[in-house]
Structures are given as structure tokens and as C-alpha cells.
Computed example of a mutant assay.
Amino acid sequence: MQFKAQCIPLAIALAFASAGSASAQEIIKIGHVGPVSGPSAHLGKDNENGANMAIEDLNAKGIKIDGKPVKFVLMLEDDGADPKQGTAVAQKLVDAKVNGVIGHLNSGTSIPASKIYYDAGIPQISPATTQTKYTQQGFKSAFRVVANDAKLGGTLGAYAVGKLGAKKIAVIDDRTAYGQGVANEFIKGAKKALPGVQIVAKEFTTDKATDFNAILTSIRGKGPDLVFFGGMDSVGGPLLRQMKALGITAKYMGGDGVCTEALPKLAGAAAVNGVVYCAEAGGVTPAEQKNLDDFVARYKKKYNSDVQLYAPYVYDAVMTMAAAMQEAKSSQPAKYLPLLQKINYQGVTGLIAFDQFGDIKDGALTLFTYKDGKKTKVEVVK
């Protein structure tokens, strides 16, 4: 009994010491939002994985801010690629007093959510939102680490007529902010590069559609040599499969939403080979390639799957936000936001720096095609 009486105060003392140590470590909450349910769940999970890798790496480094140890905690939310759900989870993160937000993936959710973050003074870095409007709203808290639709769609339009020789083009979009935006910019780019190009059809579907026979039958009669689709791979893949079934031999082009490793599974490997051209809203120079390759290899080892699309950009978005906090010697949004606006961070996807709107400076695009069912790089365009 005497031994127990002596041990109880010691146990209490150790507990207090442990609590004191924990309280000395500041907790920094980073929100991540993406669609981890619904048709684009594979892309949302890819982004989520990239965020997790960044948080783990930051904590493994034992980061200090203003000389004090910190621990980064990731708060994961699912927006289902739905604008209403997106604003709901945005408010949830604001209420949780997160220090910053990485997301959203889709333009249709990022744009309405961005006002909620702006009103709360919380910095938001999107790793995938390309709709030009996102950074044109006057919200100084909104940033992106990829090129926007004006560059993405415009470059694809010029490539379609200049390199692929397209003269008769059919355009389909899914009516989302992203789909309409990239399709409109594609048309502008094509017309600018070749004023005489014919847009023989301009059709639309939805981001949940599965049957495209009526649209494609109409398009087939107009004999296009290229079909452009503005939307995500979950719709774009089945659309391409049905194009082939109807005997449409036109080239197929899309933005980053269809430019995924999953596209051959969704459309069929035979449907994509030598037919599909797309662009990812990012890219690295040959000198930067090793850093990106190393990340891709680490991702593959950790998750036993390939990077789908934007996981490296999510990783860099988290790291860039943390770097701004370190420079500001504070994780408080009002204090590190001015440093984020002026940041120069060398990431796995290249140099991260923002212009006065929050767009990435000198944003690159990577053009891809598909060979033997595998996404294959064509060239990087800046």
C-alpha cells in the first residue's frame, strides 16, 4: 500500500508534464475540400492523398513557427462536386477556425466557397480550379497553383487547328462552371489561331449524364474532324466510348478534367489510343522533372496507385501555405496572407509565385495523348 501511495503523485506529475508539453505545441488546422463521393471521387481522393503526404512531411520535419513547435492537422471535407455542399462545408471549416484551406477541386464549388473564405479572412489555395472567374472576383484570399481556363482552353484551341489540322469542330460541355468555361476559351483560341475554322456544332449535356446518343447522332451528320468536350472524365470517358460505337472517327480533345489516368478505363483503351489530346493545367521544365518524378514514385509506393491528376499540386499548395506561415512567423491568416501574396516557393511542380490576382505566374500546361492505354506526355507549353 505504501508503494502505491508513493506512485500516485508521480503519475499525476508525469501527466501534468505531458499536458504542459502538448500545450506548448501549437496546432495548425488546414482544411482540404474535394469530391470524395460521386463520379469524381477518384480525383478527390487523389487530391486528398496529396494533402496527407504534405501534412505528414511537415510534421516529420518538426516545423517551428516563430521558434515554437507546431503540429499540422488536416481537416478533410467532401463537397461531392456540388456547389451547395461546397458552401456548406466551407462554412463548416470557417466555424472550425481553420488556419487555411486547400481546395476545392471543381470550379463550380471553388467559386461560391471562395466568398465564404474571403469574408472570414481565410486564405484559400486551389490546386485544380481553372475557371478564370475564380481569381477575378477581387478576393485577395483566393489563389491557384495551376494555369486558368483562358490559357488552358486557348492553348488547346490553337493546338487543335495548328498541330492537329482541325477545320470542322464540334463542341460539347457539361454546363458546369468549369465545363462551359474551358469550352468557351477553347472556341476563342481556335478562332484566333484560324479565323476560318468552323464550329459545326455546340451542344451541352450534364455532369451526371450517361446517354449521349442523341447529341452524337446529330454531331455525326455534321462530319467534324475534332470533338472537344468540356467536363470531367466520368462523363467524358463514356462519351468517347459512345462516339466510337457510332462510328465517329474524329479526334477527341478535352481539358484537364478528362486528362486522367482513369480515362482509358472509362472509355476503353482502344477508344483513346491515338485519338485523345488533352492538357493538364501545370507542367515542369526538364530541370524540374526529377523532383516531380520523385514525388510520383513516393506516391505510388505509399498508396499503391498512380497519381490521377493533381496530387502534386495539392502537395505544393499545402507546402506553400506552410512556407508563408514560417516567413510571417505566424499561422494567423491575417498575418501570413500578405506573405503568401509575395511567396516564392520551389515545389515539386516548379516555382510557386502569384500575380496580383492570385493566379500562378508563368503557369505551364502539359499536353498529353494516350498510347497503349497510357497517358503520354507530348510537350510542356508556357
Results as ranks from 00 to 15, higher is better:
155 T>F: 12
158 A>K: 14
205 T>H: 07
215 I>D: 06
142 A>E: 13
208 K>A: 06
142 A>V: 15
146 V>H: 03
155 T>Q: 09
223 G>N: 14
172 I>V: 15
158 A>T: 14
160 A>Q: 04
138 G>K: 11
155 T>S: 15
135 T>Y: 11
208 K>V: 08
204 F>C: 00
198 Q>Y: 00
215 I>Y: 05
125 I>K: 04
167 K>S: 15
147 A>D: 10
190 A>C: 04
166 A>Q: 10
133 K>W: 00
181 G>Q: 08
151 K>Q: 15
190 A>Q: 04
160 A>M: 09
129 T>V: 09
191 K>N: 08
179 G>I: 02
161 V>D: 09
156 L>F: 12
154 G>L: 05
144 R>F: 07
187 I>Y: 00
137 Q>K: 15
182 V>S: 03
210 T>V: 08
164 L>I: 11
183 A>K: 07
195 P>M: 01
193 A>I: 03
144 R>T: 06
128 A>M: 15
139 F>D: 09
199 I>A: 02
218 S>I: 00
153 G>W: 01
193 A>W: 00
210 T>W: 03
159 Y>D: 00
163 K>Y: 09
195 P>R: 04
186 F>W: 12
150 A>L: 13
145 V>T: 15
195 P>F: 00
186 F>C: 09
174 D>K: 03
133 K>T: 14
209 A>G: 04
197 V>R: 05
162 G>T: 12
170 A>M: 08
210 T>K: 13
207 D>F: 10
190 A>V: 02
130 T>S: 13
220 R>S: 10
135 T>P: 12
179 G>N: 05
140 K>L: 10
185 E>C: 08
141 S>M: 12
164 L>M: 14
168 K>H: 11
203 E>H: 04
185 E>I: 07
219 I>S: 04
179 G>L: 02
169 I>G: 10
203 E>G: 03
159 Y>N: 01
200 V>L: 06
148 N>I: 01
143 F>N: 11
125 I>N: 06
184 N>K: 13
130 T>I: 00
131 Q>V: 04
196 G>A: 14
180 Q>E: 10
